[in-house]
Amino acid sequence: MAGTVDPARSAQMSLVRSRDTKPEMRVRKALHAAGLRYRLHDRRLPGAPDLVFPARRLVVFVHGCFWHRHPGCPAARLPKSRLDFWEPKLAGNVARDARVRAELESLGWKVIVIWECETRKKEALSALAGGIAALPVVSPARRERKT
């Protein structure tokens, strides 16, 4: 049965979102409530980070524990079937995350990753907001004028 795709599984996987996920929305809501303003998914930056704080040269990624292999998290377990598909797929995600992080850091950006399981804890969200607010503003926010 290798190579065949279960239509029910395909339909289920098509519902997996990459933007505006529940964990991302929890982070966005907490940071906004703390008075922090950000840009979303800036495609000009490597990896199109979930949240971008241009004046602080900071990006935040909200990683799903399963998809990005959160070390030590029970949600990061491998599926029991189709390991020939899942192992390289998930390893590729981790490799891409490391590559994107290195690119951003080489461009002078600070990178923060908050994991899906951490977004369920108010203390973690408060600590994230406090940590971001404590960062100095590196450059004033520039507004482009339309002429």
Rank of each mutant, 00 (worst) to 15 (best):
A34L: 05
W86P: 07
V5D: 10
D6Q: 03
R120I: 04
P54C: 08
L15I: 06
F53C: 08
F66N: 02
L31K: 01
H32A: 05
R17Q: 13
R39M: 12
L83V: 13
S14R: 15
V94S: 00
M25D: 10
A2W: 11
K146Y: 12
R56A: 14
R26E: 06
R143H: 14
A8I: 09
A2Y: 11
V16A: 11
L90H: 06
M13Y: 02
V60Y: 04
Q12G: 06
V100K: 00
R143P: 05
K89D: 00
T21Y: 07
A133L: 10
T119Y: 03
D97T: 07
S81R: 13
V60M: 08
A33W: 00
A134V: 08
C65Y: 01
L83F: 05
I112E: 04
I112L: 15
A129G: 02
M13R: 13
K80H: 09
V27M: 09
P46Q: 09
H63N: 15
R9S: 11
D42H: 13
A11V: 01
W67S: 01
R99E: 15
R28T: 07
E105K: 02
A8S: 12
R69S: 04
L83H: 12
R69T: 02
P136W: 02
P49W: 12
P46D: 14
L51I: 12
P7G: 08
V113K: 10
H68V: 09
I114C: 12
